[in-house]
């Protein structure tokens, strides 16, 4: 019931759908239903069709619907499992589940790897890291010389690329991320621990007993 283009109310969703999504994620049935309230809010902010478009994700994250951002593109692509240009509720739940405080660290590390493996080659390469650092500098209006940028990237690869083949494999990324847990701080959203009490306005609409 989540992937139709019709507007939906959580009450129109079958308990089996909520239960299935709860089963496929770290969330309880009530939490899935509470997250549906958040999803509805996000998915009607620009185009009221019950799907999150990139502009709507951008509006939620940047408070502005327009403007290119490499990281926004990557986050959107990872949420959009079906690669059809929109985020459906089911995809929203699957992706947010990785950000649950109780999700295994390996899942978080894997998600971050896929985020940074821009060209999906199975490796994070220096050109990709350079592109991402350039993007964050642009986003934050910081200016660094090419020389400094090269130094930062070289230092990072000296630390992360343990077999010195010039690229970071998933195994190397795993070891590197475990050594530098601050890199994963964005991968956990404490809000998700108990979304029904963190957002009391959502409770009104939850009616399924866990």
């Amino acid at each position: 019931c989540f992937d139709s283009r019709r507007r939906q109310s959580p009450r129109s969703c079958q308990h089996a759908d909520l239960a299935r999504l709860a089963h496929e994620s770290r969330f309880s049935v009530n939490e899935v239903e509470a997250l549906y309230e958040l999803f509805k809010k996000l998915s009607c902010s620009i185009i009221d069709d019950g799907l999150i478009h990139k502009e709507e994700l951008r509006l939620a994250l940047f408070q502005a619907p327009y403007g290119e951002n490499l990281f926004l593109d990557r986050v959107f692509d990872l949420f959009d499992e079906k690669k059809n240009g929109v985020i459906e509720f089911e995809e929203f739940i699957h992706a947010l589940s990785v950000f649950h405080p109780y999700a295994p660290i390996e899942e978080k590390i894997d998600f971050a790897f896929r985020l940074y493996d821009l060209r999906q080659t199975g490796f994070i390469e220096p050109e990709e890291v350079r592109e991402m650092v350039a993007a964050i500098l642009k986003e934050s209006d910081m200016i660094l010389s090419d020389e400094l940028l090269t130094m930062i990237i070289d230092k990072t690869f000296a630390d992360a690329d343990s077999d010195k083949d010039g690229k970071i494999s998933k195994e190397e990324w795993m070891a590197y991320a475990l050594k530098h847990p601050t890199l994963l701080k964005n991968m956990t959203l404490p809000y998700l621990k108990d979304v029904t009490t963190a957002f009391p306005s959502f409770i009104f609409n939850t009616e399924v007993e866990d």
Binding site: L38, L42, A60, L61, F62, N69, F71, L72, R74, V75, L96, F99, L115, Y116, V129, M132, V133, A135, I136, L137, E139, S140, M142, L144, L148, M151, I152, I153, K155, T156, D159, A160, H180, T182, L183, K185, N186, L189, Y191, A198, F199
Partner: peptide
């Protein structure tokens, strides 16, 4: 000091990577 940071620390500062913003009213 950006030079003392690793590249991924810099990258993780992107607002797009802070999904906590989705929950802001």
């Amino acid at each position: 000091q950006p030079t003392s940071m690793n590249a991924f620390e810099l990258i993780s500062m992107s607002r797009a990577l802070d999904l906590g913003n989705l929950f802001e009213e």
